[in-house]
Design a protein around this nucleic acid. Structure first.
Lengths: 223, 223
DNA sequence: ACAAAAGTGTTGAGAGTACACCCATGC
DNA sequence: GCATGGGTGTACTCTCAACACTTTTGT
């Protein structure tokens, strides 16, 4: 196999590190931005909270590995996932050289009923603003993921991946406010959204407290 | 060593791929955006043009490895470098599983007198708009790098890293036009640059053809 | 009736865009 | 004196930010 040729010919010259993936999954619940974490079952960092993730298979695409590890460790399946950054400092893992490719994923509320998998004691959602101490450099990963999410919100359509398929404008605004960590003017916000052509109205509903709100659906018109 | 523990305990379960870095170095000369390429000395893709790059050392940070490979293969040292994207499709390298972390680097004109190193027959600059066929997935890397550079130009100060420390506004505009691939209105461009507070004037000079142009220096005031 | 959330317009400031001519120098 | 690139101002449009009250429902 071609692999063997490379490995034989360069083994000592180019020793190979391990390659892992880690996933930062966000959702917004009750106006709070949350991250999905697992409690590690094995050392290092046993019983410490960490991002879901693990080593890649040799014939597995990076993104596939990210989805698989997420599913195995938390039972969560995800709609949107994209590469975030690759963390490769020597010393970031006490076991040796491990390069980790971090991924960013978004989840609508209600779909994340995390069940702990093999390598996790348990899995749970934490508010980004009140995270426990994290294993490895996972704190830095979350920080970078939040930055990226804020950009994606404003330039792309990230907010809609954090909502169910039918939503009210107030819910949409609440997602924006949770992600950006600021409060927005209701009138300006609604005008901007409606003028963008990204949403289309459907039948009204959502009659909880107060006046019932119109429901909208995302329509990815704009390139 | 900790490394050994991990390798022993999980060797078959988590076989490790190889990890490489590749660097997309840009410069602008005569109004054209150029990329630095090498002609590969060894197979695979022998005598094909490719980005400078190679396998990482086990105790070497990714960015260090990128700078080292660039220096070894082309003799070029670089001022600004940042991580671009990690390419990890199984099958992207015929020798076996190789994950490559791509970096983006910028160079002012005049500093890139490429000398071929060990693994390269020769090194040379190519206009982005007229690239030869590239080895591996390096064509995709260049494409992604151009996209990223266009964004960095507009949101950050990337243009100044493509210029000498003293430059005229026309040179600055020429860099923008080369990177974006469009032509810009001179008056609007100059007003925007001068209002941004990013440049400060110094003594006038640059007396080539026509009226001599004022020289400016980059001043990274704005956050 | 009242509590609770939904919905609605106007105004001012700043940023971007379009557009054409005169100026200083080298030859 | 002419060729070459350097340098300059105005008017229009559009986007964004600030700002407060009325409407509809459930209890």
């Amino acid at each position: 196999m071609a692999e063997a040729v490379l490995r034989d010919s360069v083994d000592n010259k180019y020793p190979s590190p391990f390659v892992a993936v880690d996933v930062v999954v966000f959702r917004v619940v009750e106006g709070k931005l949350q991250v999905l974490l697992i409690e590690r079952r094995k050392p290092p960092f046993q019983n410490t909270w960490a991002l879901p993730g693990g080593f890649i298979g040799l014939d597995e695409a990076l993104e596939e590995a990210a989805c698989r590890e997420l599913r195995e460790e938390t039972g969560v399946s995800v709609t949107l996932i994209e590469q975030l950054y690759t963390f490769g400092d020597p010393g970031r893992d006490p076991r040796g050289r491990v390069i980790s490719v971090a991924y960013l994923a978004l989840l609508p509320p209600g779909e994340g009923a995390p069940q702990a998998g093999d390598d996790a004691v348990r899995a749970a959602w934490f508010p980004v603003m009140a995270l426990p101490a994290l294993a490895f450099d996972h704190g830095e990963m979350v920080g970078r993921a939040v930055e990226r999410l804020r950009v994606k919100l404003q330039i792309e359509d990230a907010a809609f991946h954090l909502l169910p398929s039918e939503f009210t404008l107030s819910e949409l605004q609440s997602v924006w406010e949770a992600v950006l960590g600021v409060s927005l003017d209701k009138r300006n916000f609604r005008r901007r959204v409606l003028n963008s052509g990204q949403v289309t109205e459907i039948g009204r509903r959502r009659s909880g407290e107060g006046r019932p709100a119109r429901l909208y659906r995302y329509h990815p018109r704009r390139k």
